[in-house]
Simulated scan of single mutants.
Amino acid sequence: MTDVALRWGFNDLSHFSRSFRRRFGMSPREYRNLLGFLQKPGWHPDTSVCHGPT
């Protein structure tokens, strides 16, 4: 997460986290975990339903 914060011009990780939460309604960690879930096999973006491995 530090590399992302620095890439976007934040020198303070706490400030980045607060700004991220205000903008996206979740912490950077929660967002990363959500992306990990969405990239699992069986997840379909049109239905937002996880069907499990096929």
Rank of each mutant, 00 (worst) to 15 (best):
M1A: 12
M1S: 09
M1F: 10
M1E: 14
M1W: 06
T2H: 00
T2A: 02
T2K: 00
T2D: 01
D3I: 05
D3P: 00
V4N: 06
V4F: 02
A5W: 09
A5F: 01
L6A: 07
L6H: 12
L6P: 01
R7M: 13
R7I: 11
R7D: 06
W8D: 08
W8T: 02
W8F: 11
G9V: 00
G9C: 00
G9S: 04
G9E: 00
G9K: 00
G9F: 01
F10K: 00
F10M: 11
F10Y: 12
N11A: 03
N11G: 02
N11W: 04
D12H: 01
L13Y: 10
L13K: 12
L13G: 09
L13C: 05
S14K: 13
F16E: 09
S17F: 05
S17T: 15
R18V: 09
S19K: 01
S19H: 00
F20V: 04
F20I: 12
R21P: 02
R21E: 10
R21V: 07
R22H: 13
R22A: 14
R23A: 08
R23T: 12
F24C: 06
F24A: 03
F24V: 10
F24L: 07
G25W: 11
G25I: 04
M26G: 03
P28C: 06
P28W: 03
R29Y: 03
R29G: 03
R29M: 09
E30G: 08
Y31W: 07
Y31R: 10
Y31H: 10
R32H: 13
R32P: 01
R32I: 13
N33M: 14
N33V: 13
N33T: 05
L34G: 06
F37A: 14
F37M: 12
L38N: 03
L38V: 09
L38F: 11
L38H: 07
Q39F: 12
Q39W: 11
Q39N: 15
Q39E: 14
K40F: 05
K40H: 08
P41G: 05
P41S: 02
P41C: 01
G42A: 10
G42Y: 09
G42M: 08
G42Q: 07
W43I: 03
W43Y: 08
W43G: 00
W43A: 02
H44E: 15
H44P: 00
H44Q: 13
P45A: 04
D46V: 06
D46W: 06
D46L: 08
D46F: 06
T47I: 09
V49Y: 06
V49S: 13
C50T: 04
H51T: 13
H51D: 14
H51L: 11
G52Q: 08
G52V: 13
P53A: 13
P53L: 12
P53E: 15
T54W: 12
T54C: 13
T54S: 15
T54Y: 13
